[in-house]
């Protein structure tokens, strides 16, 4: 057994301690990435000499635990990230959404909200916003409260605007925010139909009868067992014919959660829930 194997045992024990003590389940997160973040925390902020030494601190010191798990959520995001995906949503999903009297959309792992407001803008431009209800969830409360505020650094505006234009946006992007001194604030009218809530994909349940679920760049943080759980959760949360959109580098191919879905647009990672009775 080499040092890497020993470290892996330490990490399993640490994650087990976190789960038993606080109910936060990171045992099925993609190991390589969470190991990196634990190592980073160990070296920069823990005051401990080894991962094993962090275990008693996690058990007895709640603030230590909170600082540690802050490192486990990576709320890195942008508006209209991967613009071509939004173009595809406009072309392939919106026409079907228009056939419903009301539309329910769930952003799972919404981070600081940029993706949610991008969707709100898209729906507005497609004339769907008024009959839409958007649920935006994450397990990171700090990110959620930023999402609710909808205030972003002014230097991100250039990127957001560029993305918006490439996504097939038909207006001037500046209509959607108020510029402040060094930040921008999302238009109030875009927030009206959005509900932000804490939801943990690893431990919480089904989320209503959705027509579209956006879960982008979240599954890559999970191992294939947990990915399957989440894919099943999405299967159960969607109406028949409802859509699931993943991150552009994510796939259901390496989990058994894919059986509920058929591919609608491969590069944009848009899937559709198969109809009842559809042979798996």
């Amino acid at each position: 057994m080499n040092n890497a194997d020993i470290e892996n045992i330490e990490i399993s024990l640490l994650l087990e301690a976190i789960y038993e003590r606080y109910g936060h389940d990171f045992r099925h997160y993609a190991r390589a990435s969470i190991s990196r973040r634990i190592r980073q925390f160990l070296n920069n902020a823990s005051g401990c000499a080894s991962i094993s030494e962090m275990i008693p601190k996690v058990l007895h010191d709640e603030s230590f635990f909170e600082r540690l798990i802050n490192n486990f959520s990576i709320p890195v995001t942008e508006m209209f990230r991967d613009p071509l995906v939004y173009r595809s949503i406009r072309q392939k999903i919106v026409p079907l959404l228009k056939t419903y009297p009301f539309v329910r959309i769930w952003h799972a792992g919404c981070a600081t909200g940029e993706e949610v407001y991008s969707m709100a803008i898209l729906l507005k431009e497609e004339g769907l916003y008024d009959r839409a209800t958007i649920f935006a969830t994450d397990f990171n409360d700090v990110a959620l409260s930023k999402a609710k505020e909808g205030i972003y650094a002014v230097d991100s505006i250039k990127q957001f605007t560029g993305n918006y234009q490439q996504s097939g946006g038909s207006a001037s992007f500046s209509e959607y925010y108020h510029a402040r001194y060094d930040s921008i604030a999302i238009q109030h009218s875009l927030k009206r139909n959005i509900t932000f809530a804490n939801h943990n994909l690893a431990t919480d349940g089904v989320f209503g009868e959705m027509h579209l679920i956006m879960c982008r760049n979240v599954l890559i943080y999970l191992d294939s067992a947990l990915q399957s759980r989440v894919a099943n959760l999405f299967g159960e949360s969607l109406t028949y014919g409802g859509f699931l959109c993943l991150g552009t580098k994510e796939t259901l191919d390496f989990t058994d959660g894919g059986k509920h879905f058929k591919v609608i647009d491969e590069p944009a990672r848009i899937y559709q829930k198969k109809a009842a009775g559809f042979a798996p």
Binding site: A30, A32, S33, I74, G247, K249
Partner: peptide, 21 residues
């Protein structure tokens, strides 16, 4: 590695991507 993502290796010799900063 796809541009914009970190590329890592898991213990079972599979590849993993991350959108970390």
């Amino acid at each position: 590695a796809p541009p914009g993502y970190h590329l890592l290796v898991e213990r079972e010799e599979t590849l993993a991507l991350s959108a970390d900063e």
